[in-house]
Computed example of a mutant assay.
Amino acid sequence: MHTKEYITAGKDLKQAKKALIMLHGRGAQASDILSLAPHLQVSDYALVAPQATNYTWYPYSFMANPNHNEPWLSSALDVVGEVVKDIEAAGIPKENIYFLGFSQGACLTLEYVTRNATKWGGVVAFTGGLIGDVLYTEKYKGDFAGTPVFIGTSDPDPHVPVRRVQDSTRILQGLHANVTEKVYPNMGHTVSQGEIDQANKLVFKS
């Protein structure tokens, strides 16, 4: 099971008006995802990057049956929820809480916000989709109320099929998220400058 461990950067939580939760990919560290921050328009945000136990949020593919990824998947979702509570306790409301993830962290990001749809500040998923061998739509509830969401991915990507990205977009749109999906030909499993530009334009614009 995961323990709630995270590193912070940017503004102090008690002084910032906005916070960004950054979720790293498989085999990475919280410091790795934080290294994206200088490229994003988040200089006035508190940055919070949780660390997955053993450097992975769940053991198998995000497209495996969710039961095969337990108890790690539920524990990872719980950690994100606890971080949200910590941020709220510091005085930052949900509408000023933002999320960003890459790869496995992008999948976890989308899964958490869609299970808890509300008016968030914004969501960025660099190569990810909702989790499951199929999409269990009964798990997704709430109303994003126009929350801006950017999802970028490569075609092809070795881990994330474009079809799953497209299906995830439709589910988020059904919960009233304002989703922009961009598919980049042969981008590879990485974060591109084009994606950074889109995230800044669509999500971190204020």
Rank of each mutant, 00 (worst) to 15 (best):
A52I: 11
N65L: 13
G188M: 08
D155R: 11
P59A: 12
K205W: 14
P148Y: 13
D32A: 09
Q104K: 07
A177L: 07
F150D: 05
S192Q: 09
A90M: 11
G25I: 12
K119R: 15
Y60L: 15
E111M: 08
K14N: 13
C107P: 02
Y58E: 08
A177I: 04
T114L: 09
I33D: 00
A199C: 05
F126I: 08
G152P: 07
V134Y: 12
E88Y: 02
N67Y: 05
Y6S: 02
D133P: 06
R163F: 03
G146K: 11
V160Y: 03
W72C: 01
Q173H: 01
V191P: 02
Q29K: 15
T137H: 03
L77D: 06
V42P: 00
V80E: 00
S192T: 15
A145V: 07
I21K: 03
F126T: 10
H176K: 13
T127H: 11
G101K: 04
V79C: 01
G25C: 10
H68Q: 15
K119D: 05
T147K: 11
V83T: 07
V83E: 04
N69H: 04
R170N: 11
I131G: 05
D86W: 01
P148A: 12
R163I: 11
L110Q: 07
Q166V: 12
D32F: 06
V203Y: 11
R163C: 00
N116D: 09
L23C: 06
K11M: 12
W72F: 13
N186V: 08
N54R: 15
G174K: 08
A52T: 12
S154E: 11
L130K: 05
Q51M: 14
D32M: 06
T190M: 11
T127L: 12
A106D: 06
K17Y: 11
K139L: 12
L23W: 01
V84D: 01
L202R: 15
H159Q: 13
A19Y: 04
K18G: 08
T153E: 13
I87E: 01
T190Y: 03
T180D: 13
N67M: 09
T114W: 05
K94M: 03
A76L: 07
G10V: 05
G129K: 05
A28P: 00
